[in-house]
Design a protein around this nucleic acid. Structure first.
Lengths: 240, 240
DNA sequence: CGGCAAACGTAACCAAGGTTAATGTCATGA
DNA sequence: TCATGACATTAACCTTGGTTACGTTTGCCG
């Protein structure tokens, strides 16, 4: 039985067979949840650490005026939040975007792993650093790219991440985003996202339809986005 | 001799005297560098981990078109980047904003600390999580706040962080930012930052002058910003 | 003291993207 | 079958913030 989470971590550190067995053992508690299910709500006490095994989710924050900003998309293998029970309360929400399978590692288990297994700790750490790189890339996009570049960049990121976990073909992959969700991720309005997608479609660069992304001209797409996948670091090594 | 870095970590985990001694010992190698000095350049091999002891710095990324996006401001006690030699190459730049004192912990030293001292590891981890919370808050600002709110929010963040390390008085603190730097942090143009600062000044909310921030009406400032300092988490506990 | 560079301050004009609102499409379920 | 609701699409109009250009202030150094 393959486990997306363990596979991801293997890409980050040379886990021994014992490490792998231990990790698999640790995420034995699996729940299946429907789309739109909240895994974490702002203010929750942070107890178990959730890990995506199947499906997509996203983290977001609400603003007083009702605005929503999406902070990250989570796909199979991703930690929802590696807080290790360190913070008093969650400062954002996490909700599933599709039906999903979620493992929960209780706090004690996480601590035991970190205490006993330096290689696992290292893999966790690396995973954190990669996530942080993704956050930084989002900041760059929001701050300095215009709408078309922004959307293109996010599509590149998500496509490459999907490819890295073996869930993308040469030119397309599942991408279960509505234009509303996309808008809340890139900091635009749904109306403008629609305009941008139309433009990209007419320019024969890419199409986003019925929950799947179709890349027509990868070179042009990457060029519009100014995409440099380096920040996704180690994820790449899992492909080979 | 007090050490801003050790003080920060103490706020994050119950370090023993031995831990503290070890940490102080570890950052014995201190350099003084002038303003505008690059500590890290994109592409550098990530060897020693740098820690701010005095002064300010910031991390940034350049875009092909010459645009610059600032990713974080670093003040005394902050890690420049806790990569622990995990990534192949740095994916962003770090440069000092003022004269600064910087400690460098060689890779081996970091690894030794993490391997031998679970409490120190925990403090490092917590520190990472807080930094990640700051990144998330920036994303929210860039995505969903308009110029005035954005600038106000950043001022709140920086003021509170300065206060948390004892470097702010009731209504003001050092804030060595030019309008150009500020613009590259909040994703606006210098011209527009100037307009926003003027507006905040005329509204008797705050003033930013000659490298220092003067908060005239803290309540109004926080309100404009929609500021909720929770995401700065544990830093608060050092104040008491 | 004079000259230079960096940063600040402002104004006129412009464009990217937001707002509002109407309409279309499609799947679901009574 | 028809009603419903979520999402996509489009158009007309407006606001925020970008662009360009220039003058002022300040600090530094010969």
């Amino acid at each position: 039985m393959s486990n997306a989470f363990v596979e991801r971590l293997r890409g980050y550190a040379p886990l021994s067979d014992a490490d792998v067995a231990l990790l698999k053992e640790s995420c034995r508690t699996v729940r299946e949840v429907p789309a739109g299910h909240h895994l974490i709500r702002e203010g929750d006490p942070p107890d178990p650490v959730f890990v995506m095994l199947e499906g997509w989710a996203f983290g977001y924050k609400m603003l007083p005026d009702g605005g929503r900003q999406i902070l990250a998309f989570l796909m199979p293998g991703d930690f929802c939040d590696v807080h290790i029970a360190v913070l008093k309360a969650m400062d954002h929400n996490v909700v599933t975007l599709t039906n999903a399978k979620i493992a929960s590692l209780p706090r004690a288990q996480m601590e035991a792993l970190v205490e006993a297994r330096p290689t696992i700790t290292q893999a966790f750490w690396w995973s954190q650093l990669v996530d942080q790189g993704v956050l930084r890339a989002w900041i760059v996009s929001m701050g300095r790219r215009k709408s078309e570049e922004r959307v293109a960049h996010l599509m590149c990121e998500l496509y490459i991440r999907m490819r890295n976990i073996g869930l993308a073909s040469d030119d397309q992959c599942e991408m279960p985003l509505t234009q509303i969700v996309l808008a809340d991720a890139v900091g635009l309005t749904p109306v403008h996202v629609n305009r941008v997608l139309k433009k990209l479609r007419l320019a024969k660069v890419m199409e986003l339809n019925a929950g799947s992304l179709n890349i027509i001209d990868p070179v042009k797409l990457a060029q519009i986005a100014g995409f440099d996948g380096n920040y996704l670091h180690g994820r790449l090594q899992k492909v080979g």
